[in-house]
């Protein structure tokens, strides 16, 4: 079947099967940041935005995004580079496989709640699993990024 949608700001027309998963279609369109982890809605690795909301692309039929706006990490380069540096600074990750999913969901959180408490961060990101780190470094990275953004707004940096 024919599928038309917007991907990272560009209009896309492609052909998919009725049971193609959004994850596979995005990867076939060159979005290698979208990773397949558990493929059972558990790990958060495959997180993308559909109409600006974070969803698990391993559990969304591609057919369902017809006429909608899909964003992957490739479409958020500037925001992601900025934030990613803080995660790297904390040595928060080891293999880095979970990183794109974490970045996507953290960016969704920053947009929804620019001043999250520690509990709110842990709660919002609880669907992003990491096999290597103990989450502490990621939490520190997020908190220092938020502190930096605040200081930037106040003209302190």
């Amino acid at each position: 079947m024919e599928l038309k949608f917007e991907l990272n700001g560009k209009k896309i027309a492609t052909v998919v099967e009725a049971d193609s998963l959004l994850l596979d279609v995005l990867r076939s369109l060159g979005c290698a940041s979208v990773k397949r982890g558990c493929e059972s809605s558990n790990c958060g690795l495959c997180t993308v935005f559909v109409d600006d909301k974070p969803v698990l692309s391993c559990s969304v039929l591609a057919a369902r995004v017809a006429g909608r706006k899909v964003t992957t990490l490739e479409g958020l380069q500037e925001e992601a580079a900025d934030f990613g540096a803080f995660i790297a600074d904390q040595g928060a990750e080891q293999c880095g496989f979970c990183n794109p999913g974490l970045m996507m969901n953290a960016i969704a959180m920053f947009r929804e709640n620019p001043h999250p408490s520690e509990e709110e961060i842990l709660s919002y990101l609880s669907g992003n699993l990491c096999r290597c780190s103990g989450y502490e470094g990621q939490l520190r990275g997020i908190q220092s990024y938020l502190a930096f953004k605040d200081a930037q707004k106040k003209g302190e940096v």
Binding site: S41, N42, G44, V55, V60, N105, L125, G127
Partner: peptide, 12 residues
């Protein structure tokens, strides 16, 4: 519902 998997899951 707050502990059902994660925000991305609960969005769909």
């Amino acid at each position: 519902v707050k502990d059902i998997v994660g925000v991305q899951f609960r969005n769909t």
